[in-house]
Design a protein around this nucleic acid. Sequence first.
RNA 1: UCCCCGAUAGCUCAACUGGUAGAGCGAGCGGCUGUUAACCGCUAGGUUGUAGGUUCGAGUCCUACUCGGGGAGCCA
Length: 503
Amino acid sequence: MPNSSKVYISQLKDSVGQVVTLSGWLYNSRASGKIQFLIIRDGTGLCQCIVEKGKVPDELFEQLKHLGRESSLTVTGTVRQEARSVGGFEMALTDAKVVSPAADYPITPKSHGVDFLLKNRHLHLRSQRQWCIGKIRHTVIDAIRRFFNDNGFILIDTPILTSMVGEDKQTLFEVDYFGSPLYLTQTGQLHVESAAMSFGKVYCFGPTFRAEKSKTRRHLTEFWMVEPEVAFIDLDGLLELAENFVSFIADQVLQNNRGELETLGADLEALEKIKPPFYRLTYADAGDILAGEKAKKFLADQLEDLKKQKQQIENRIAELEEEQKGQIKQWKRDKNATELIELRSELNEVETRIENNPKHAKLAAEFEWGKDLGGSDETIISQMHDKPIFVTHYPKEAKAFYMKTDRDNEKVVLNFDLLAPAGFGEIIGGSVREDDYDLLAARITEFGLKVEDYSWYLDLRKYGSVPHGGFGLGVERTVAWLTGERHIRQCIPFPRMMDRVYI
RNA sequence: UCCCCGAUAGCUCAACUGGUAGAGCGAGCGGCUGUUAACCGCUAGGUUGUAGGUUCGAGUCCUACUCGGGGAGCCA
């Protein structure tokens, strides 16, 4: 290569008019006789490269014409502004060197099923959608650390191997630790509480493990969670912290990843709305909504809507199928076939929702004070709002032993869940912790746990106990919500699901 | 643990009430000087998840199993 400077695609705007060199992979290519369009990705973005016959050696022209997707290569050319090109810039090639040719790359620019993509996860990470999500996940994690670091919180690394049972032993992964059982942590909370008594404001951030047998789009067995814990704070203080925190994350993503959000088709307008204050409901309020006319009407309207949608899709399918039977041009026939495939998959989804709607309505109508809110209940509440919703003061019996009883109403605890709007559901769970030694010891016993096993945890209530609390935010759920990705398994590079680990 | 749905070409999907498997994409070859998941022509590509059953005949019906998807419970 001649003396051209090496640049990244993200910096092309500073190189207009100059001859530069890019290194990357062939994302896609189109040939049109004497001109070729190569889309190259280098990790920072996409760039269209123009290869004109006569401007490069004939041999190279032919080589590039037959180069497979995801071949690695280095290209040199002149950068120019070009509105028609992805990213707004393109490169007129004068030279290129294939580093390593690739053939038969399994992932094509057309649609693929989830199973296929997960089996090819190591390659799928290269595709646009995963790349955008990965960049946003990076911003989310960076925002999480920055928010706490800039607000006087100290990072505490809690153990991954633990003997403590935070919530329920059945949902823990057991590990053989030199002959005796130990568990993969499902929360750093208990440990982080002790650190809060030293530093005041702390947080832990790491992977967490749940052996829940949940096969849904919002579950992973291994996921990342950040858990702040603050001494001398009450429920209102926690809610305020949580809404500022979540708003900051959303704002950072909007500032740094607008392009990625657009590529993903995220709802930017909805994201702009994520600003304090969030909605505040008590568990009792939520119950009234669920069991009342409002939710009933909401779900009935939704069902009507879905049925209308279904009818429309079916009509269109019938129309197209009729057309396919007649005498039509081949290209029209192919186009219809593509549309039919899309419509059928849409229809499938709408039908599932129609099927689930009455079930969810029934569960909501059967709301009974004392039970925890179900996943579908949270979805309904979430769908009824356009901003995140706090649900507070759950019944004591539905929640963990460490949550502080409301001194004004002994039946409920000072806890909260934060539900993301538009049907995404829970992204945060948190509470004020029981800080009274005797009450906590009694709760431990009530839960069938041994007080001896929690002696160090109880010590925190023995030596200078203070009101304190915290919460846990799920990174993947947050990323899924912000990006509009329907399944959280797309929001972690290498997802672990129940009975299912690919690479 | 329970409920619903599915498995057909490398991928995404068709095949009306049982009649002998077809598109698009991808791959290969050719055409086209501005393409945007380009387009056009040709070629190759299948023991219809496995095992059994009903039938003159099974991708289609029945049974069991395997694998996958969605949801409930539980949760971030």
